[in-house]
């Protein structure tokens, strides 16, 4: 028992690793601040184009969304970071992570937003268009506000996934929280820094997870 506590909950080591993990947390949050808005914007573009009445807009959009949903994000990240240099395209780990995650996130946010748009009854858009509002005005002022509200739990769920996904950036040595914790583990020969990182993720994401569960229960009633 003592050995277990010593290996996973060693307060001394945790205290020593805290500044490193804190710096990693900073990088994780910075990544989220970049990757979530990019993903939502990309997802909106994906949703709107994949619902376009024009076939030559819709089909490529659907193909791209399918592609980036089917490729594992880790494969995509390593391809962008370690594969593209063979084509002479080199970038920093940060840029590689941002690009790979944006492609992956856009596909997922796109599917959620598409479902949201489709959940709004057709009569809503017809009413708006009948008053002379353009397609874009109708989307912005009538369809999207309702559609987003309808899929808000899914948007938050997806965002939780995105935050967790940022830990993949550790494989390209971007100093986010998991990378920092793992570094501390290898220096101290102790798993407590990893426990600590897990706890920080938990504190960060548990409220969102709880909120979504409560919402979904309320909607189910």
């Amino acid at each position: 028992m003592d050995q277990l506590l010593d290996q996973f909950f060693n307060l001394e080591i945790m205290a020593a690793a805290w500044p490193t993990i804190l710096r990693g947390l900073g990088m994780t949050l910075l990544l989220c601040l970049l990757v979530i808005p990019l993903g939502v914007i990309g997802g909106l573009a994906a949703a709107l184009t994949s619902l376009s009445p024009r076939r030559w807009v819709r089909w490529p959009a659907i193909a791209l969304v399918d592609l980036f949903r089917a490729i594992p994000p880790l494969v995509l990240l390593i391809f962008v970071y370690a594969g593209l240099p063979f084509a002479g395209i080199r970038m920093s780990p940060f840029v590689a992570v941002a690009i790979a995650f944006m492609l992956n996130n856009s596909a997922y946010y796109g599917e959620v937003l598409r479902a949201g748009i489709l959940s709004v009854p057709r009569g809503q858009a017809e009413a708006a268009r009948s008053t002379g509002m353009t397609h874009a005005q109708t989307m912005r002022a009538v369809v999207l506000p309702q559609g987003v509200r309808n899929v808000l739990p899914d948007l938050i769920s997806n965002t939780v996934e995105v935050v967790k996904l940022t830990s993949l950036a550790s494989v390209v040595s971007l100093g986010e929280m998991l990378h920092a914790a793992n570094l501390a583990r290898s220096v101290t020969y102790n798993a407590s820094p990893i426990t600590m990182a897990a706890l920080v993720y938990l504190i960060l994401l548990w409220p969102a997870v709880r909120l979504v569960s409560r919402w979904q229960r309320r909607i189910a009633v």
Binding site: Q124, A127, T131
Partner: peptide, 20 residues
């Protein structure tokens, strides 16, 4: 079309008011 539609009012069976 949008310019002409603003001069043609329409009322629907299911009202289609904006609930938000």
């Amino acid at each position: 079309l949008d310019g002409l539609r603003r001069r043609i009012g329409m009322v629907f069976q299911s009202f289609n008011l904006y609930p938000h």
